[in-house]
Design a protein around this nucleic acid. Sequence first.
DNA 1: TATATATGCAAGTATTTACTTGCGCAATAT
DNA 2: ATATTGCGCAAGTAAATACTTGCATATATA
Lengths: 110, 110
Amino acid sequence: MKARRDVYQAIADPTRRAIIGMLAEQPQNVNAIAEQFDVTRQAISLHVKILSDCGLIFIRREGRDHICEARLDSLNEVSVWVEQYKKHWESKLDSLETYLEQLKKERYGK
Amino acid sequence: MKARRDVYQAIADPTRRAIIGMLAEQPQNVNAIAEQFDVTRQAISLHVKILSDCGLIFIRREGRDHICEARLDSLNEVSVWVEQYKKHWESKLDSLETYLEQLKKERYGK
DNA sequence: TATATATGCAAGTATTTACTTGCGCAATAT
DNA sequence: ATATTGCGCAAGTAAATACTTGCATATATA
């Protein structure tokens, strides 16, 4: 469990995206997060660790509490990657027919 | 290999992101894609299937060629999700000290 | 000091992932 | 017709993933 661990992989899991959502609203300790899910605290603890490892959350110790706060700077990498393709889905043509029509005017494949 | 297969999971793999990048520039058949990687054609074929399954690419048959083209509409989901947190990384404070200072003024944890 | 609380670590499991090799099939090309 | 090319399917493997339970370790509280 120490392999590829980048932002893309971190946000691939819906539970982790939910955790990010919660922490973006308000920092919370691990137990508080875990109570909002059906899995064990340890499962959440692992998700928190993964998020922490890739820099998406920052863990501040306050007594025995480990308070997690969203630090979403590294989401910028995803943002940049996705936005570069924005034209691909925003310049949609009206129908598939028109689309295919256009495709035939060009050369494709190898 | 038929479990969770959403856009987030699809783009979690660097090879698949690379394939998307290639196809965004120019549609290509499976072999043409595979030649640009060190893995077998079948490995790429699987990636292509995953991308196709979640709607990120469209496969058009032309004789024996399966020509893949980027259809990145579903990236919009990722875009929307990421952009909602943009303020979290764009409103960065100058230093960690200032940041922590601000945190102390609020109540955290459970 | 004893006890409860918050948490991490370790080990074990089931499932998924990312691959591989081998094969079969359809569409060209010879 | 036969060979070649492009490709998917099936089966197998190694590793990663998402969990679990059990235990150890701090910190707070009675």
